[in-house]
Amino acid sequence: MKIEREQDVVPFRNRVKEFAVKIGMSLVNQTKLITAASELVRNMLKYANGGSVIIEIINQGRDNGIRLIFDDKGPGIKDIPLALKDGFSTGKSLGIGLPGARRLVSEFDIKSVEGKGTVVTIIKWKNG
């Protein structure tokens, strides 16, 4: 799914919700996943002028989950450990987007090449 404008955020969140409902994720976990997704997609719009997100259902043993891959061609993140710290922001926001999103999901992975872009992958297990 392409994310190019801020108006894309709400439909995107709805799509994530559809997937979460499909695998029977609890309301609390749905909310956590959607909030995390919302933070990441906002970052993507703000720092990289948009990008694309892949939404997929994954299985591991008996556990189902949702994997979201956020891919942008933005400026990249210079210091990832610093970016994951609470309260750090290069923009004028609260600086809790990235670290907050990490706390809300089961698995969180971030890869970034300066000048090339950033890929953030998150997984939320149905019962995780």
């Binding site: 309301l27 609390v28 749905q30 909310t31 956590k32 909030t35 933070e39 609470d86 609260l94 809790i96 670290p99 907050g100 999103a101 706390r103 809300l104």
Partner: peptide, 14 residues
């Protein structure tokens, strides 16, 4: 505020 929202807000650190 919905309970799920409250739970998420606190975990988010907001």
């Amino acid at each position: 505020m919905q309970p799920a929202v409250a739970i998420t807000l606190i975990e988010l650190g907001l």
